[in-house]
Design a protein around this nucleic acid. Structure first.
Length: 508
DNA sequence: TTCCGACAGTGGGGTCGCAAT
DNA sequence: ATTGCGACCCCACTATCGGAA
């Protein structure tokens, strides 16, 4: 298939807001693709290269060769070039990558160049990603959408499912099942502002809820098949070699086959959690793991079991899965948990965990199945939220649907006679807020480099955040974690804003 | 007819490993 | 040694569509 066919479709998909129309456009292309092409075509329609890493990003695509006049590139040509790039990713010379990029882009028309940049940066911005393409696969193959979705979640993603659906239909899709050794997309949690709201969202009134501790570490999905243990992250990256403690915990269990879901976290000697940065650094390190584990050991806590000794448990209610978990794992390897119908008890558990330095809780419906890849209401997380009144020091131009608006604001805390920047945020703004702040910050502008507008430090903004972390990027040595706008405050002057000292007090 | 679940988009800070400077 | 880049860890929030109620 010609790449131009995909580019043309992407343009048409971007041009309509109707999801049904997008789906139909995508399905038409899938139906045209050959059996050899269809997996790649599905991935490209969803805006993803088939290679996990190509070593080429936004920066490597800033200067491109002159484009081709005629569209001649095929989907297969692109795959071939990206395979070559992937082969030198994280090892090859920049010059070699440059040559491969130039060759590929030199054979692309201007439209194809733009599309390829979107593909490689993950910013196609056509209003359709994997989820919509899965629906399109169902339409093209004339099979039920839930069947396609389930197969994708359990069977290794869009590409293999697209191929199976288009070549084998319903029968092929039904063959996809949880297979120990092959990771499945993890179930995700919705969120609520407090424990009562979370309980109300998770279960009908008066029923039991499961309340799990939410630990601030790295999500791990562990597969054991006989003596072989493999560890996957939330995005299904294989990190087995980096986390031997997790492997040992599961290897010690009295089972032959298991799939477990949990969290790995670095703790202090007294059992309190270390800052997320330390757990993150530990799990990201690949070199000299043996030294690292003595310095920053990881502890693993599991909260779910998807498979046990030949038995799939995904569709079993959580209460039953937890019974199996309790029978299989020592208490020390399980996430702290209470099961209660008393909202007061859930609240107390939440407060105790937060006081101990943990992130919060996840409230769960005991009747809910494990919905791989979904952010259902069966799991609802609750974390404490802090707020500060900070001063806007600058604002950046937005992109995409925020083009023409001033979007990402720079936040400062009061320090002596001046202000110290603590981070940025673009979250929590409604369209109305964006329109207002665009006008407001143009009035306060003192400088403009074409991207960032510097403003007189006068506008106070109330900011919600999850915590304060150490920073090497910002001059105060501190940065906010997950900062978002609550509201602009016109009842406070910059002289009344919170100080750097106050912010430092939030450092754990 | 209204409501709400699911998606896509818009980006945040920190960390590692590697190549180039 | 330091810097820039890509990839990945953690992620919140709003607007919108279209099926559910």
């Amino acid at each position: 298939m010609l790449l131009a066919r995909l580019v043309q479709t992407s343009t048409a998909v971007a041009a309509t807001r109707s999801r049904v129309a997008k789906r139909t456009l995508l399905a038409a292309v899938l139906a045209e693709a050959s059996a050899d092409d269809v997996a790649t075509v599905a991935s490209y329609l969803a805006g993803s290269a088939t290679q996990r890493r190509t070593g080429v990003g936004w920066r490597g695509l800033t200067s491109l060769p002159d484009p081709a006049l005629e569209p001649t590139l095929t989907v297969d040509d692109v795959v071939t070039r990206l395979d070559e790039l992937a082969a030198v990713a994280g090892g090859g010379s920049r010059e070699r990558r440059r040559a491969l990029v130039d060759d590929l882009f030199g054979r692309a028309t201007p439209e194809e160049q733009t599309w390829l940049v979107g593909l490689l940066t993950g910013e196609l911005r056509q209003g359709a990603l994997e989820s919509l393409v899965l629906d399109a696969v169902a339409e093209a193959a004339e099979v039920p959408a839930p069947l396609v979705r389930r197969a994708a979640m359990l069977g290794g993603g869009l590409t293999s499912v697209a191929h199976a659906a288009m070549t084998g239909g319903t029968e092929s899709l039904e063959a996809f099942a949880l297979e120990p050794g092959r990771p499945v997309l993890p179930m995700l949690a919705a969120s609520a502002t407090d424990v009562p709201a979370a309980v109300a969202k998770a279960v009908p009134e008066g029923r039991d809820v499961v309340v799990d501790a939410k630990l601030d570490g790295i999500r791990v999905q562990v597969h054991r098949v006989g003596d072989d243990v493999r560890v996957y992250t939330r995005s299904l990256d294989d990190v087995t070699s980096r986390v031997p403690e997790v492997v040992e915990t599961v290897a010690a269990l009295d089972v032959t086959t298991a799939v477990l879901d949990g969290e790995a976290i670095a703790l202090r000697d007294d059992g309190s959690p270390r800052p997320f940065q330390e757990t993150g650094a530990r799990t990201a390190s690949r070199t000299d793991v043996e030294t690292l584990r003595t310095r920053t050991p990881l502890t693993t806590y599991f909260f779910d079991v998807l498979h046990l000794d030949g038995e799939d448990l995904l569709d079993r209610p959580l209460s039953e899965r937890l019974d199996r978990l309790r029978a299989t794992l020592p208490a020390t390897a399980q996430v702290p948990r209470v099961v209660t119908s008393d909202p007061g008890q859930a609240e107390t558990f939440f407060r105790t965990l937060v006081a101990a330095g943990h992130e919060g809780v996840v409230v769960k419906d005991p009747d809910a199945p494990y919905e791989a890849g979904r952010r259902g209401s069966g799991w609802v997380k609750v974390k404490p939220v802090h707020t500060l009144d900070l001063v806007v020091l600058g604002v950046e131009r937005g992109s995409g649907r925020r083009s023409g608006l001033l979007s990402n604001i720079h936040l400062g805390a009061r320090d002596g006679d001046g202000f110290v920047m603590l981070g940025k945020t673009f979250k929590g703004m409604t369209d109305e807020t964006l329109a207002w702040q665009t006008e407001r910050f143009r009035e306060l502008a003192t400088d403009d480099d074409g991207y960032t507008v510097t403003v007189r430090p006068e506008q106070v903004v109330e900011i919600a955040f999850d915590g304060v972390q150490r920073s090497t990027r910002y001059p105060g040595g501190l940065a906010l974690r997950f900062a978002r706008v609550v509201r602009y405050r016109d009842d406070k002057t910059a002289a009344e804003a919170d100080t750097l000292e106050t912010v430092r007090g939030f450092l754990a």
